[in-house]
Design a protein around this nucleic acid. Structure first.
Lengths: 203, 203
DNA sequence: CTCGGATGTAAGCAGGCGCTGACTTGACGA
DNA sequence: TCGTCAAGTCAGCGCCTGCTTACATCCGAG
């Protein structure tokens, strides 16, 4: 919508960053196909042709967005929390708004397929990598005999996050869309605990 | 991909149904923008121009898909289950594969926005209507003082369903994508119970 | 100062898109 | 047998897409 602020031009790396920033927003909210390179360029306050200069193609830009999202998710989960409740709280915070101050939309990006084989491979790998990180953070052993069941539960937790962010940001369903941390913390925490607690308990 | 079987032509209502069927598949899996009217027509084994004849525009066809999905979800939840566990089981079945033998993709359709104002309004209304149905089926009172919290939890359950279907069908994340009812029933049931049980319990 | 590479710009191409309007085909009653 | 009208076909329009190419501008090294 609005131009990137104070772009003075003639700074290649800044231009690249502005493009990736704008592209991530568009790709996450509108989807790959619905996003046009002219929109992205306008959002970044940059000439359209620079997308092809710096990223070769629209696919290339999408791939760059995926890589950056992958990196961020990785670095965010590298400082491992000690307590199980920290993991839960971190997941909740991820849904409400992304911890590093950027949009929670980086998660949405993981749902968007481009049709390009390479970018989509990165997407799937990031998703599965994120799964393993979550499973590990929840205190599961990778060599556990029931690893598949563990990963399944971690992926269901991620699915809950993705679905929630989608309903909030993209569909705008009420009252979920305008709920804040105080309203979401308890029910989301319940769901995550039910999925991730080691012994699901007798029901 | 494959043509509708045994379409003999010269049957308007059958043609309309074939178009909606094919369109729902495409819209649900590929998204609105990435789906072309020529693809839909080819899938249905029908001439492209008939889309405009019967549904005026691509938007109109999308709206028709939304309305049919809305109707189906409504009729499916009208035969109200008696026990709470029946509600849970029905939600799980919805994720694994839709109860009436059709694709589980009808849920995915609820995530796809067309950009058309009218179709998207239907989408949001269907989603919110589905929320209330679920809340009611879970035994909540509409006049409960804490209605917002109730709807919130119901919507989180729906978000879990949508996210799961998305990761399975669209992203193809393993092991979630190839998990069946036996693997999904327990963890999904845990999550739904945690969200929908009347007294979340002391944790 | 001047030159050359890096950075940004403008115009436009080929192709695919949704959609249209004039046409043909088929079924059926008079 | 023929007229009629719904059902289906076809060619192509105007537009927008991603991308390319040729050109302008800036700035630091010599």
């Amino acid at each position: 919508m609005s131009d990137e602020l104070m772009r003075s031009g003639r700074d290649a790396t800044a231009t690249r960053r502005a493009l990736v920033r704008a592209a991530r927003r568009r790709f996450a909210t509108d989807g790959y196909r619905a996003t046009t390179v002219r929109q992205i360029a306008a959002d970044a306050g940059v000439n359209v042709a620079l997308i092809n200069r710096y990223f070769v193609s629209k696919d290339g830009l999408f791939e760059a967005c995926m890589l950056r999202t992958s990196d961020e998710l990785d670095s965010q989960s590298s400082s491992r929390p000690v307590h199980f409740d920290d993991v839960i709280e971190r997941l909740v915070a991820h849904v409400v708004n992304s911890p590093d101050g950027d949009d929670p939309l980086q998660l949405l990006l993981l749902l968007r397929s481009s049709g390009d084989e390479n970018a989509d491979r990165i997407r799937r790998r990031t998703l599965e990598h994120f799964t393993e990180k979550l499973a590990a953070a929840a205190g599961w052993d990778r060599d556990d005999p029931a690893t598949d069941g563990v990963l399944l539960r971690a992926q269901l937790a991620i699915a809950t996050m993705l679905g929630t962010v989608m309903l909030r940001a993209s569909a705008g369903v009420e009252p979920l869309a305008s709920a804040g941390h105080s309203e979401l913390s308890a029910p989301l925490g319940d769901a995550f605990r039910a999925l991730l607690v080691r012994t699901p308990g007798p029901s």
